[in-house]
Design a binder for these strands. Structure first.
Length: 423
RNA sequence: GGAGAGGUGCUCGAGUGGUUGAAGAGGCACGCCUGGAAAGCGUGUAUACCCCUAAAGGGUAUCGAGAGUUCGAAUCUCUUCCUCUCCGCCA
């Protein structure tokens, strides 16, 4: 969430920039500012009363030691009303802080100046593109038909075992996915990321830390008995490693990568978007996460985007990078680049990666700070990106590389798959 | 799951109602000393919020978390989370 300090010092600017995200922040921001003033004055009253109480208590202690029972008893009398007002102020303050937090979590992050205006996906800017469009043979099939033809993915079996959106991968497709995971992790390691194996289930505090809670509660699977959530992305456990942590400036940047299965309820999705591998309840993904100094976070974002580009290039997929418009960006992001690959038989661009700078928005919730070389402690910037999400990559690989003889595996993957053709 | 022990600052560790943000040691930082280093000596070493600010300074809260008793709680009571040991179960 945004910091109170920033909001109170840049009120009009905040409202202005929120409007770019099509968020009408006028009333909520003004309420925040008013509540913050109330918070300060209440805190002052509370602090003064507490100070007075502390002094009285010390005096009483001294009087008792000196054996002046009567005077001590008299002093005790005076504490009664103080105690009441302290309790009242304390309750008021707690209440105000609660209200403030409730308001603040409703306010999205501010878009970076370079974010294009716009409301929908059509307003996203194509930053750059590359790769060769494949020439498909006669009778080319979408991946769900290829999956059947070569016995690669059994969607019905998944329905039987779990439900829609939980496909069963078989044979060379299962091996292809395992190969992709290793390929992505090895590349990340070579790019300087530390590999992490995180828990797939997190507590509510972690969900709040990265912003899935409270706003996107319905998107996560929840184990009620234990009050734990299945992770929608490795971003959640990996970023929460740094919750309530004060790093040293010299430790920055922190670069972590993790493979995980991801679980998403995807409530409300339907139609061609969910056909085949396009949208699943469980899928595999390798994530990259960085914690960086605020002065360097945009250079880091550029670096991360360039890194993901090397992946799609090695996979020989037609790709393009979109600079998301303000309206299409996530709640918590300040600047996001999406990667799409072309899935030739579906004739659709599929989102396979999203790389974002959250600036201090997540860090403020996480309380992830660093102590600078100047001894001052400040919020760090967090960034993350998919590198990458598997199912749509698999869909594009299957569709784009189909030949009459079978499905070709791109050269960079062959050492990982151990085969060069699915037939 | 059953029985017991415990959770204190960067670390170890003292502290069972009174001026304790917290002894002591270690670590780290700075200074002195030195030709240089070590040793030694000295100083400093949390976070958040508020007041005042040019700077300095001051106040409040925090000893796993939450609630309570008390004029006063790291110390007492309750709840809860976590860790460790033994038993049980088990990939």
């Amino acid at each position: 969430m945004l910091t109170l300090k920033y909001i109170t010092e840049n009120t009009q600017d905040v409202i202005q920039r929120l409007s770019k995200k099509h968020f009408d922040g006028e009333s909520i921001i003004n309420e925040v500012v008013a509540l913050d003033n109330l918070r300060k004055s209440t805190q002052m009253l509370l602090d003064n009363s507490s100070a007075e109480m502390n002094n009285l208590s010390k005096e009483i202690g001294v009087l008792f030691k000196q054996g002046k029972q009567a005077e001590a008893a008299a002093a005790k009398e005076k504490t009664t009303h103080l105690k009441e007002s302290i309790k009242a102020y304390d309750e008021q303050l707690t209440d105000i802080e609660q209200k403030l937090t409730n308001l603040l979590v409703q306010v999205p992050n501010l878009p970076h100046a370079s974010v294009p205006a716009g409301k929908h996906a059509e307003d996203n800017l194509i930053e750059r593109a590359g790769g060769k469009m494949p020439l498909l043979p006669q009778g080319a099939m979408p991946h769900w038909d290829l999956a059947k033809k070569y016995d690669l993915i059994d969607f019905e079996l998944g329905v039987k075992i779990s439900g829609a959106g939980f496909p069963v991968y078989k044979g060379k497709c299962a091996r292809l996915q395992r190969a992709l995971i290793n390929f992505f992790l090895d590349n990340a390691r070579e790019a300087g990321y530390l590999e992490i194996q995180p828990p797939y289930v997190v507590n509510a505090a972690s969900g709040y830390g990265t912003g899935q809670l409270p706003d996107k509660e319905g998107q996560m699977y929840h184990c009620q008995i234990d009050d734990l959530y299945l992770i929608p992305t490795a971003e959640v456990p990996v970023t929460n490693i740094y919750r309530d942590v004060i790093l040293n400036e010299n430790d920055l940047p922190i670069k972590n990568t993790a493979y995980s299965a991801c679980f998403r309820r995807e409530a409300g999705s339907y139609g061609k978007d969910v056909r085949g591998l396009n949208r699943l309840h469980q899928f595999d993904k390798v994530e990259i996460v960085q914690i960086q100094h605020p002065d360097k976070s945009y250079d880091t974002l550029t670096e991360m985007v360039a890194y993901v580009q090397t992946l799609v290039e090695k996979l020989e997929l037609p790709w393009r990078i979109l600079r998301l418009c303000a309206g299409d960006m996530s709640f918590t992001s300040a600047l996001t680049f999406d990667f799409e690959v072309y899935s030739a038989a579906q004739e659709r661009w599929l989102e396979v990666s999203s790389v974002s700078n959250f600036e201090s928005y997540q860090a403020n919730r996480l309380k992830c700070r660093f102590k600078g070389n100047d001894k001052k402690t400040q919020l760090a910037h967090t960034l993350n990106g998919s590198a990458m999400a598997l199912p749509r990559i698999v869909a594009a690989l299957l569709e784009n590389n189909q030949t009459p003889e079978g499905i070709r595996i791109p050269a960079a993957l062959i050492p990982y798959t151990g085969f060069d053709l699915i037939d």
